[in-house]
Amino acid sequence: MATVLKPLPPQPVARLRLAPRSPFPRPIDGAWWPRSRDLLVELPLLIGALPAAWGQIAGITVNSAMWFSGPGRMLVEGHVVRLHRTEGSHGRHTICLISPGHGRWDLLVVPPEVDAGDAEPLMAAAAAATAR
C-alpha cells in the first residue's frame, strides 16, 4: 500500500505595501496589515517579505498597546532581532525597522481586525505617502 503525502498548507504571505524607492526620507515608508497581534508569528512573515536592499533587520520598535507581550529579542531567519517597546499613543499604529548600515523604515500598521474594505485604502495611501 502506497503512502499518500498531503501537501503542507501554504504559509501566509505578509500583507505589505511599500512606497517606491526615493532618495528623500518619508514620514511613512509603507503599510503592513498583520493577521494577529502576536509578534512571534507576524514578524518573521514581515521580515521575510522585505526587500533585500533593506539589509538585515536588527531592531524593531513597536507600541506596547498594539501587541501581545513577548520577548525582548527573537531569532528570525537565522539572526537575532531586538524588540523595543514604547508606551502611550504616539506611534501606536507604526512599526520602526532598523537595519545597521542600511537605514530606518517606518510602516503604518493596520490593525488585524480591520476589514479588507477599510485596510486596502489605508495601505495604498501609506505606500503613496509623499516625501517630507
Rank of each mutant, 00 (worst) to 15 (best):
R132M: 03
S99K: 05
S69N: 07
R132N: 02
A116D: 10
M74H: 11
P10F: 04
A128G: 13
F24I: 15
A126E: 00
A119S: 02
L43R: 06
D29N: 08
W67T: 04
D118V: 14
A119H: 07
A19R: 13
D29H: 11
T130Y: 05
P25Y: 04
E42H: 13
R17N: 04
P71Y: 02
P12Y: 08
A129R: 10
W54T: 15
T61M: 05
G55D: 09
C96P: 00
W33P: 15
W54Q: 15
V81C: 11
H84I: 13
L45T: 01
M66D: 12
P7F: 03
R15C: 04
L16W: 03
S69E: 14
V109W: 00
G30W: 00
R85V: 09
T86E: 03
F68W: 15
E120K: 11
I95V: 15
S99D: 09
I60R: 02
R82A: 13
P44C: 01
L83W: 02
A49M: 05
N63Q: 00
C96Q: 08
R17P: 04
D118L: 14
V109N: 03
L108D: 00
P111W: 03
G117Q: 15
R35F: 03
M123V: 05
A124Q: 04
T61A: 12
A124E: 08
L83E: 03
D106M: 09
G30E: 04
S99W: 02
P27M: 09
A116N: 03
C96W: 12
L107A: 06
A65Q: 14
H90D: 10
L108G: 00
A129Q: 15
L46P: 14
A125W: 12
E77F: 02
R37V: 00
A125M: 06
D118P: 05
F68R: 14
P20V: 04
S64L: 12
D38M: 10
L43D: 14
L45Y: 10
V41Y: 07
D118W: 02
A14F: 04
R21S: 14
G103F: 05
L46S: 00
G48Y: 12
V13H: 10
D118S: 14
W32T: 03
P111Q: 06
R26N: 08
